[in-house]
Design a protein around this nucleic acid. Structure first.
Length: 794
DNA sequence: GTCTGCGAGGTTTTT
DNA sequence: CCTCGCAGAC
């Protein structure tokens, strides 16, 4: 969602700088090379395998890097080495990652290694950001203008919805989401509409390819791309324009790819084309950590690397620097059950440490309660280990809905936590709206953005007005904003609507002029939000979310200051949808297993190991054995996140959509090697057990117990036990300090809570308050998590 | 054109 | 249970 109408010249200039003419380049390198001809201290820090991965500079290299084996270190050292030996200058190295985070990290680490002497690496980035750069340069070859807009998922869905409606197809039969998924899938596999295999284009799906083709047409008219297009267009250009291909093949002397196991077909083609000349391509990956098959990643890419690049050198990194032997052995035991893998044997010379702990619980709430207590104990330094800070602990769940139990519990006991990977900042409604305003102000032809906010806040421009706008736009072949201009001029629409529309057009004209004049963009952004009435809309909104939304808008405007201008910001946002929550506060992390890849924590909790949940029923239904193996890799990723302590748990009963459902322990539990696992007895089983200290039993016992759990007799017994000892688990809370008392609240006071919104205090129970929330109902909440209602800004 | 109430569905996610 | 989207009422 960007447009580069006036920013493009700058972009082009930057591009030229990043990629000077070959002839010109040859005059520079001597000095540049001399500058990097230095000793190689970064090599000394490497083990033999890593060294091999770094020093094998020519020809194809596949580095199979197991979890925690120093993959990033090898990759960055390799880049440093390329620079240092004068093999390539910074702008001749193409280094590809999947996430912006990984790209940032790598940039930082290379800077450290080379002493920050390189002026950045212009071609280090994600597949998508690099593709954008290339595509802006050659857009005309695929019928786009270099100022093309990048659509986000939201734009994409709205567009598809329109197309479905326009084709008078039942939108029940073709929900936009389904269609978007289908199209994404095709694009992942580099299939243009005409190339979708007929087997998939049959009957039902036939309409799908028609719609796909219509969608592509529409994108061209809008001068827009979706994420898949960024890659696909580049692949198309490289395939159909040998001169362009050759130019880049020669320019990028060395290619490096991170997380190769996650590449999809389109990305694979992209790489193979660019590496086709010299074949100096180094791919780093771990087939055991391929967990994105469901979104098009092809483990096959890594499995058949040697076939694609004959003569490839394969280097295995097997020494693990992260986890203790027990943890490593448990992970290896699980992953060994997978059939299709290249196979690696991880080893470590770290001290033995704790066994992986396994515990079963009666239900999900008890699991959350137990983990909460464990976390508090571990942070105090109980359990015979050195204290682990809260931010050294993580709960890794299979599905987001598991997070809730933990959030509820931690709110109740006042345990600070952070949820990673919730709704992302830039995906929030208010942020998208605000950005739509910016987009139109920057590029008045961005019709999708215009349509999004034409009636937000309400201006009396409903469906009918929008239809009329679209009709006029089509008739005159102009953008929506120009269509609005025409309607206003010619007296179309009802007088009221016409007035409102005229006002909006005048607003955008004014703002656009300010953009052109190069007015201060932060002030301008604020002005736009103000004058459009958007800020006022939320200020007048009485729902609990409104406050947060206003906060977010403030945050957005604040964030703008980091960019040179609005267009720079919009480009950034289009490609970088992550939000850095860099609160450094000590908090426990809650996230999905997917989000945890690449991270590590001293202590990791893996709850919800139940068949159906993990492995997920859906994955197995949809992808069978392949799905199961991917789930198993997910288990492997989860366990290998742990440095010192890994605790796996399952619950016999879980509430799913308000229905109680009892389940069996995950089949992965059976795959844990017994000698590396310590089985804990759940609290409550004998009425008085309190946590982890209780007697050990065997895996078989636990499995058997799970059966017992499901029996009616046990339920009755457990119900009695919990009733009798219900209060026993309330922990003496040591994370609460004097501040809790300082924020005293009285019965009847109006308060505000981040998650639950506004409410009235009904009772004060020590450090906890019983609050009747306006929207969320009555809840017990720790006092310091609420503020008096009138303390809230705005 | 906007608001309300009812029904259907329920997501692992990055760009 | 909760959220979102749509149809129908105002």
């Amino acid at each position: 969602m960007i447009a580069m109408t006036n920013g493009f010249e700058e972009e082009a200039a930057a591009f030229a700088a990043a990629m000077p003419d070959r002839a010109n380049a040859d005059r520079i390198p001597l000095s540049a090379r001399a500058r990097f001809a230095r000793p190689t201290p970064y090599l000394d820090a490497l083990n033999p395998a890593q060294r091999e991965a770094v020093e094998t500079l020519d020809g194809p290299v596949l580095v199979l890097a197991g979890a925690g084996t120093g993959k990033t270190r090898a990759l960055t050292a390799r880049i440093a080495h390329l620079l240092n030996t004068g093999r390539a200058r910074p702008n001749e190295i193409l280094a590809v990652t999947f996430t912006n985070k990984a790209a940032r990290e790598m940039k930082a680490r290379i800077g450290d290694l080379v002493g920050g002497a390189i002026e950045g690496m212009p071609w280090l980035g994600t597949f998508h950001s690099l593709s954008t750069k290339l595509l802006r340069r050659h857009a005309e070859l695929v019928g786009l203008k270099s100022s093309f807009t990048i659509l986000d998922t939201d734009d994409q869905l709205r567009l598809l919805k329109q197309l479905v409606a326009a084709a008078s197809i039942d939108d029940k039969r073709w929900p936009a989401r389904l269609l978007a998924g289908l199209i994404d899938g095709w694009k992942n596999r580099a299939l243009t509409p005409d190339r979708v295999p007929s087997s998939e284009a049959h009957a039902f799906a036939y309409q799908g390819t028609e719609l796909y083709a219509a969608y592509q047409e529409r994108l061209k008219v809008l001068n827009a791309c979706d994420f898949g297009d960024l890659l696909l267009h580049v692949v198309g250009i490289l395939q159909h324009h040998p001169d362009v291909l050759e130019k880049y093949q020669r320019w990028f002397r060395y290619i490096l790819v991170d997380e190769y196991q996650d590449t999809n077909v389109a990305q694979y083609l992209w790489l193979r084309l660019l590496a086709g000349g010299h074949r100096n391509i180094a791919c780093v990956g771990d087939d055991d950590q391929s967990i994105y098959g469901w979104r098009g990643a092809e483990v096959g890419n890594i499995l058949r690397f040697e076939k694609d690049f004959p003569g490839a050198k394969v280097v295995r990194l097997e020494q693990n620097y992260r986890s203790t032997p027990h943890i490593l052995a448990a992970a290896s035991g699980v992953i060994a059950a997978n059939e299709s893998r290249l196979g690696k044997t991880l080893w470590t010379d770290l001290a033995e440490g704790e066994k992986v702990r396994l515990i079963g619980h009666w239900d999900g709430e008890e699991e959350a309660r137990w983990i909460g207590e464990e976390i508090e104990a571990l942070s105090r330094g109980s359990r015979g280990l050195d204290p682990i800070p809260l931010d050294g602990m993580a709960i890794l769940v299979r599905a987001t809905h598991q997070m809730r139990a933990f959030e509820d519990r931690f709110l109740t006991i006042g345990l600070p936590y952070r949820v990673i990977g919730g709704p992302r900042f830039y995906e929030r409604l208010e942020i998208r709206d605000a950005m739509a305003y910016f987009r139109v102000a920057v590029s008045p032809d961005d019709s999708l953005a215009f349509e999004r906010i034409v009636n937000t806040p309400k201006r009396g421009l409903g469906d009918k007005a929008v239809q009329e706008l679209n009709r006029t736009a089509r008739e005159h072949e102009v953008s929506l904003l120009d269509a609005a201009r025409i309607l206003v001029r010619d007296g179309g629409l009802a007088p009221r609507a016409r007035g409102a529309l005229g006002g909006l057009v005048a607003d955008f004209d004014r703002w656009h002029e300010l953009v052109q004049e190069g007015a201060d963009h932060v002030a301008l952004a604020e002005q736009i939000l103000d004058e459009s009435g958007y800020t006022a809309m939320w200020q007048n909104d009485k729902t609990p979310e409104a406050q947060g939304r206003l906060e977010n808008l403030k945050e957005l405007v604040k964030g703008l200051a980091e960019f040179e201008n609005l267009q720079g910001f919009l480009e950034h946002v289009a490609l970088v949808m992550d939000n850095e929550t860099d609160e450094n506060a000590e908090k426990v992390s809650i996230m999905t297993l997917h989000a945890a890849k690449g991270l590590e924590f001293p202590a990791v909790f893996l709850p919800g190991w139940e068949d159906g949940l993990f492995p997920s029923q859906r994955a197995m239904d949809e992808s069978g054995l392949k799905g199961l193996e991917e789930e198993r890799r997910l288990a492997y990723v989860g366990i290998t996140r742990a440095e010192r302590l890994c605790t796996i748990s399952f619950a016999a009963n879980r509430r799913v959509y308000n229905q109680w459902q009892s389940s069996m322990p995950s089949r992965f539990i059976d795959e844990l090697p017994e000698e590396h696992v310590e089985v804990l007895t759940p609290p409550g089983l004998y009425g008085t057990g309190s946590g982890a200290a209780a007697a050990s039993s065997t895996l078989a016992d636990v499995a058997a117990r799970a059966d017992v759990y499901a029996s009616p007799g046990w339920r009755r017994m457990a119900a009695r036990t919990t009733e009798r000892t219900g209060a026993r688990h309330e922990p003496r809370n040591m994370t609460i300090d004097a501040t809790a008392v300082a924020t005293a609240h009285e019965i009847g006071a109006r308060v505000f809570h981040q998650k639950f919104g506004y409410g009235t205090v009904e009772a004060v129970e020590g450090e906890k308050l019983l609050i009747a929330f306006d929207k969320a109902g009555s809840k017990h909440v720790v006092a310091r998590y609420v503020t008096a209602a009138d303390e809230i800004p705005f």
